[in-house]
Design a protein around this nucleic acid. Sequence first.
DNA 1: TCTTGACTTGGAGTTAACTCCAAGTTGTAA
DNA 2: TTACAACTTGGAGTTAACTCCAAGTCAAGA
Lengths: 130, 130
Amino acid sequence: MTIKEVSEKYNISQDTLRYYERVKMIPEVTRTAGGIRDYQEEDLRWVELAICMRNSGLPVEAMIEYLALFQKGDETIPARLELLNSQMEVLARQKEQIEETMGRLSYKIERYEEAIKTGKLTWTKKGEIL
Amino acid sequence: MTIKEVSEKYNISQDTLRYYERVKMIPEVTRTAGGIRDYQEEDLRWVELAICMRNSGLPVEAMIEYLALFQKGDETIPARLELLNSQMEVLARQKEQIEETMGRLSYKIERYEEAIKTGKLTWTKKGEIL
DNA sequence: TCTTGACTTGGAGTTAACTCCAAGTTGTAA
DNA sequence: TTACAACTTGGAGTTAACTCCAAGTCAAGA
């Protein structure tokens, strides 16, 4: 699979794919005899993982560390486990944050919808900002 | 309330508080006669909202737009509602992304925990990367 | 009143994560 | 075998969101 195809499949730029490889967020991609990237199944799995991590907001750095451990072999399994657990915590906190903000926005949205229906704002606490 | 106190209360730097004001993410903060910031209840509510939005990953730009609409008065209520709804969608998608990644990481974590217990990795699909 | 520490501003610097560019190479269709 | 699109690289440029700095002002205690 060429870089163009991968880029289209995952809706990510070719530059970003090269960048992920350059900073060692994913292992070196398989090449043709001429040196052109020819993504294999395993390369795609790394790409998917990288995209998944980035889409959820985890830093590139975390993935770089993970790959480095991975490439050092099985004796880094405990370290990898620790790394994954700490990323899980980060995500759990991030999820809570999002839920809190969604709650706040929902409240405002309800107020505004009511305002539009009735023609005036209905505050439940005085001085409240919307 | 001084900028120092606000900064400690919300665990955010004084520079960031001034930055939020400078880029008009929050309205101009109340000042003393001498020109020093003296945060009132309403100022704090804006700060809280700004922090909440930022912590959940929404861009500063969205909050700038929201404040600009807010300051134009009640005729911008439909526009504000639309803006909030679109931010809600962004957050909903972000939350799904996080859940997906958490699922992926959980799977890896389970594999690794098993590996540590039994002394070897147990793959369920061949060629799977961990 | 003087000192000292907290505050002010405008503007420059930093960091993460891309994104773009130029100059050169590869592969395929005519 | 030649044209030409797609690929390659190293490095520079961009963007968002801070973060730091210098030079000056304000305010509370000795």
